[in-house]
């Protein structure tokens, strides 16, 4: 029973619960089944986490970054992970952005892609979120404008310079 207890404790650490309202109960109800579906290395991070209950900032962040896999299809995970380890304040926003997109696009998207967005000439490093949707380009852009106006533009400038959100019509 000890292991079950620890596993639940580790997984139900609500990562950004000061913004609780954007997480619904379904998220927690689904967690045990989601865990089973996850990769083995994710499980290992949990084992480490059990011994180091969240006081290690790096392990705590690694878990949150791995949890992003539930919400995004991540291209080039290592680069994303390295970037988020440096710019860890973005992690909370990525969770919230996925929830906002779900709400504003009324779940009318197939996938959320998260990938590095680098421009060596400008010495720029950031992340891009692509909303893959079967909506028409007009409808998709309208939803994106709504997302910008109702949420994204209210974020700090620093966050907006590091994150780009775009639509990709399928």
């Amino acid at each position: 029973m000890k292991n079950l207890n620890l596993l639940y404790n580790a997984n139900l650490q609500k990562p950004f619960s000061h913004q609780n309202s954007l997480f619904d109960e379904q998220y927690y109800e689904n967690l045990p089944s989601l865990i089973k579906k996850d990769s083995v290395d994710f499980q290992n991070i949990y084992y480490l986490y059990e011994q180091e209950p969240e006081h290690s900032f790096i392990i705590s962040n690694l878990i949150k970054i791995k949890k992003l896999k539930y919400f995004y299809h991540i291209n080039n995970m290592n680069e994303v992970e390295n970037f988020l380890n440096k710019e860890f304040f973005l992690i909370a926003h990525l969770f919230l952005i996925s929830e906002k997109i779900k709400y504003i696009f009324e779940k009318k998207f197939d996938n959320l892609l998260l990938e590095p967005n680098n421009d060596p000439e400008e010495d720029y490093q950031g992340l891009s979120v692509y909303i893959e949707t079967k909506l028409s380009p007009e409808d998709a852009l309208k939803k994106l404008d709504e997302f910008d106006a109702n949420y994204f533009l209210s974020l700090d400038y620093e966050i907006r310079t590091l994150l780009t959100v775009m639509v990709k019509c399928l």
Binding site: M1, L4, Y8, N9, Q13, K14, S17, H18, E54, F89
Partner: peptide, 19 residues
Amino acid sequence: QQHTGIGIDFKPLDNDRNF
């Protein structure tokens, strides 16, 4: 930055089957 954690704990009751 404020970090809030919520944990769920299972306390065994008088028999092994209930928590």
